[in-house]
Write a protein that binds this DNA or RNA. Structure first.
Length: 225
DNA sequence: ATTGCTCGGATGGAACCGGT
DNA sequence: ACCGGTTCCATCCGAGCAAT
């Protein structure tokens, strides 16, 4: 397997110099520590899940601009309250112009409130669960989001984890193309075999380069385009 | 060996929300 | 029309099995 330094060199070439790459890398905050992650309220996880779900396949700007309306319509994303959503409350949301009225996505909020409450019951808080989940097994965490959460199985779940401060790679189109170029995987399918190979590659690069998954993931993307 | 059957997984296409 | 995408549904494909 190619050393991560060689991939970084590729990214520097693509971005026109080490300074340019550094500037791009500095645009984002690094991951939080598990201790920091644990202190986040579970309502914030539901808020971020909802945001990335609504942004999926849609103009991110629209969601960003309407976000205060979402916070108000969903009552601050209180998981206890949203886990029990009466029919009339759902109907009201469907007619609330302060949010984007996509019925399936609105439904995901209740499903994910229940999901987070289940995690909290089992682990003290959902935040604790996410904070303590081993970084070396992100595909395991992605599997939990896919199987037990609603609409969190793809990139939306990964974006949400990263935005909350969990150390995360994101399998965007660029990253997947980089992984194919490096012969980590042979095609773009998210088969079990490919996911295992992806995790192993990230773990290898992480331990040999000393960089976070966030950095490795972004540098891979920058090495493509 | 061939056929017919089921089942799970892969694959493809369409629908979906609103502001610019 | 476009958009850092997911899901639903329809369909197809191949493996596995049992009966001829």
């Amino acid at each position: 397997m190619k050393s991560f330094e060689d991939i970084e060199t590729l990214a520097i070439e693509k971005k026109g110099g080490a300074d340019q790459l550094s500037a791009l890398m500095a645009e984002h905050n690094g991951p939080k520590t598990p201790v920091e992650l644990e202190t986040i309220g579970d309502d914030r996880w539901l808020s971020m899940f909802t945001k990335t779900i609504f942004q999926a396949g849609f103009s991110w700007k629209v969601i960003e601009k309407k976000w205060p309306g979402f916070e108000e319509a969903f009552e601050g994303f209180d998981t206890a309250r949203l886990a029990f959503l009466p029919d009339e409350a759902f109907e009201a949301l469907l007619n609330n112009k302060a949010i984007v009225r996509n019925a399936m996505k609105i439904k995901s909020v209740q499903a994910n409130a229940i999901f987070l409450r289940d995690l909290a019951e089992a682990h003290g808080s959902a935040s604790k669960f996410f904070a303590q989940y081993p970084v070396e097994d992100q595909i395991g965490l992605m599997d939990v989001l896919k199987k037990r959460g609603s609409r969190l199985g793809g990139n939306s779940g990964q974006y949400a984890l990263r935005l909350m401060g969990k150390e995360t790679f994101i399998l965007s189109r660029d990253v997947v193309n980089a992984l194919i170029r490096e012969n980590v995987i042979g095609n773009e399918s998210m088969s079990k075999k490919n996911l295992t190979a992806i995790q192993e590659a990230f773990n290898h690069w992480r331990s040999t380069s000393g960089r976070s998954l966030n950095e490795i993931s972004r540098i891979l993307a920058f090495s493509v385009g």
